[in-house]
Amino acid sequence: MITRKTLCLGWLILAFIAPQVAQANSYDQLDSISRYALEHTSIQVNNTINWIMDSQDNLDMPFMIIDKQEAKVFMFDAQGQLQGEASALLGMAVGDDSVPGIGERALASIPPDERTTPAGRFVSSLGRNLKGGEILWLDYEDALSLHPVVAGTPSERREERLASPDVQDKRISYGCINVPKTFYTTLVSPAFKHSNGVVYVLPETRSNHAVFASYYEVM
């Protein structure tokens, strides 16, 4: 039986067999990317950054913010310096919670309205898929991970969706977060190689206060 956890583990095999082709965003000029991204993030992302840095909620670990409403991911070092940003593919359904036990359920039993990317604060670490390929686990029990974009079925057009400017095109996965291969290998993997990190998945149906227990507005 193919479960969501098996799918998450198995698809990553394909991601690391494929050649690592350079993306249009080469990350050769991170300073420029950082300045641009900080000026163009949403109010929700900026408020979250301010809270993390003011409270030191990341506990001196690298951290990532995933903005579901804009389908973007932002990578920071432990000092809060933005390292880069990218588009992301997310769960097909809008929602901030996982259905209990979804990680062990057969894929065929998961209807589209249960394919959510849950919001929350996740202390995350690198792991391995079934063939030894690398994956960033957010929540193992619910089979929630972040990994390089995989081909999926041809009709899903995942690479094309990732490049699309339309946020609605980014809602396609069973819940896992797909990012560009170069973003993962250049920024995510090195950041988590020698340290755990914190991944903040921002809510889209609730407030930051409702999802992050210690959240407060920074004046």
Rank of each mutant, 00 (worst) to 15 (best):
R158E: 12
V201Y: 05
Q56L: 06
S195D: 13
P100N: 07
L130H: 04
V211D: 03
V150D: 03
K68C: 04
I102L: 05
F76D: 00
V167H: 05
A210W: 03
I33S: 09
V99Y: 08
S98A: 13
L89F: 07
Q168A: 14
V201E: 04
W51S: 05
F63P: 01
H209Q: 15
A163Q: 11
S87H: 09
N178Y: 08
S124W: 04
P112C: 12
A37N: 12
A18R: 13
Y174D: 07
I177P: 04
D96E: 06
L14V: 03
R128K: 15
V188K: 01
I52V: 11
S164M: 09
Q23G: 13
P180D: 11
G95E: 02
W11E: 10
V149D: 03
S155K: 10
P148W: 03
I49F: 01
T116H: 09
I49E: 00
A191W: 02
H147T: 05
G197S: 07
M75F: 05
S189I: 10
V188T: 11
Q20L: 15
Y36L: 13
N129I: 00
I43C: 01
T185A: 12
L12C: 13
I17R: 15
G152Q: 06
L14N: 14
E39W: 04
E160R: 11
N208Y: 02
A88P: 00
Q83H: 05
I177Q: 01
L136Q: 05
Q79K: 01
T153I: 13
T182Q: 15
N47R: 14
L126T: 08
S164E: 02
F212G: 04
F74Q: 01
T41S: 10
L7R: 04
I33A: 12
G197T: 02
E70S: 14
P118R: 10
L30N: 03
G84I: 07
Y215S: 03
F76W: 00
V73W: 01
P190S: 03
R158N: 15
S98F: 08
F212L: 07
T185G: 00
R35P: 00
R161C: 10
Y215A: 06
D97C: 02
L144N: 04
L187H: 04
I33K: 07
E159D: 14
S109E: 14
Y36N: 14
E134K: 10
S207E: 13
L146Q: 06
I52H: 00
W137D: 02
R105S: 09
V45D: 00
K68F: 05
P203H: 04
I33V: 11
L9I: 10
F63V: 03
I135K: 00
Y200D: 02
M219N: 14
G133A: 13
G101A: 07
R128M: 12
A106T: 14
R158I: 10
N196T: 06
L90M: 08
G120M: 01
Y140C: 01
A18W: 11
V123N: 08
Q69S: 14
N208V: 08
R121M: 13
G127L: 09
S214Q: 14
Y36Q: 13
G120S: 05
L14S: 15
I102K: 02
S207N: 12
E159A: 15
D54G: 00
W11H: 05
F122M: 02
M75A: 08
S124T: 06
S155T: 11
P180E: 06
